[in-house]
Nucleic acid binder design. Structure first.
Lengths: 191, 191
DNA sequence: GCTGAACCGGAGGGTGCCTCCGCTCGACCG
DNA sequence: CGGTCGAGCGGAGGCACCCTCCGGTTCAGC
């Protein structure tokens, strides 16, 4: 289907890429509620152009994340390779938390996408994280370091909560650390 | 100090009370990001009037909560009286979570107030919850059902996280239940 | 080069935030 | 009870943002 579509016009492609690049900067700095108009301005295009390429905030966001997701995949492989199985799940969840927390305000929409039945732009990003988490959870269970009644879905929810708490508190606060410790003891089988 | 100030003019008092009442409805229905202009409109006053009584969103919110806080205090007394010490802390934290979750979006500002050094309008609301939580935590420790390294501050953070997760998911989702179980096992000493 | 379809960008209507200022009306005094 | 004056009112207005629509422009294939 997609293969039968003719390729994008060169100027359209350029604008689209530029918009995603500028959006990435803005979202990193201002969080996901950053002004779309400002992104268009900075990219030197009109608002109409932005809205044609990305009909709503979420599709633009999904595109930004799609690019960034390579980083998370790399982290996943690194964790699987280098971290001892006893701490692998912890390490992975930390990565997920850090990834989510990169963009202030992302945790909300992400949890929404985790729940939503119909596929949203953010859905695929979520699905990937869920698969990896299931993998790590299975490993941990086999090694006897994760409780049996905890699900990957729950764990992602926990990571999102922590990311939320961390980016809600004033920067530099250790508020999330206590909660993280409590959560760890709650899903691990060995403490 | 406050006692030397002359009492409010009757019309001002009336407007102020009306605004708080209308705001309460709106915030309950729409969450804390509800439109302040709409509140003013519904109360039949101009925006200027609203902003003189409540210079920013947070002071209006704090006033709404101050009224509602009686409910939480009642819950606190009921829990202290009726619930067995083994489950008292759990019961109290559930109440806190429910209370916070009543107003969609409240968890963020509340956590902020929990951290802030200088007193914000929401600060006193927080302080009250913190005191009660410390009390219940101390009881639980004495009864041997709470881990020693958990702080009341951490627990409030956890309640806020759960409230956040609960009101972020589409209504009726059980997403928060898993996280709540994990957290409970994390702070309790007996499971 | 020509042509038409794809694409552009900005004007504009709607909403919300917050401020400022001229007028009103309630409180108190004589 | 009537007058005064200042607290209080409310709406106009400036600003930012969201999103849509459409007349003009530019690319791509012939």
């Amino acid at each position: 289907m997609a293969s039968t579509e003719r390729p994008m016009r060169a100027d359209a492609r350029k604008n689209r890429d530029l918009l995603v690049a500028v959006a990435r900067q803005h979202v990193r700095r201002q969080g996901i509620t950053t002004s779309l108009e400002a992104i268009a301005r900075d990219a030197g295009v009109g608002p109409g152009t932005l809205y044609r390429h990305f009909p709503d905030r979420e599709s633009l966001l999904a595109e930004v994340l799609r690019i960034e997701n390579d980083e998370l995949a790399a982290a996943r492989d690194r964790v699987a390779r280098e971290v001892d199985v006893a701490d692998r799940l912890d390490a992975w969840l930390s990565e997920v938390e850090r990834h989510i927390a990169t963009y202030r305000g992302l945790s909300g929409p992400l949890v929404g996408a985790l729940e939503d039945a119909e596929p949203t732009p953010l859905g695929s990003v979520c699905a990937e994280m869920l698969v990896a988490t299931e993998q790590f959870l299975a490993d941990a269970r086999r090694a006897g370091v994760a409780r049996a009644d905890v699900t990957a879905h729950d764990l992602l929810g926990c990571a999102a909560m922590l990311a939320w708490l961390g980016s809600t508190c004033p920067a530099g606060s250790r508020q999330a650390d206590g909660a993280r410790d409590i959560l760890r003891r709650g899903y691990r089988a060995d403490r």
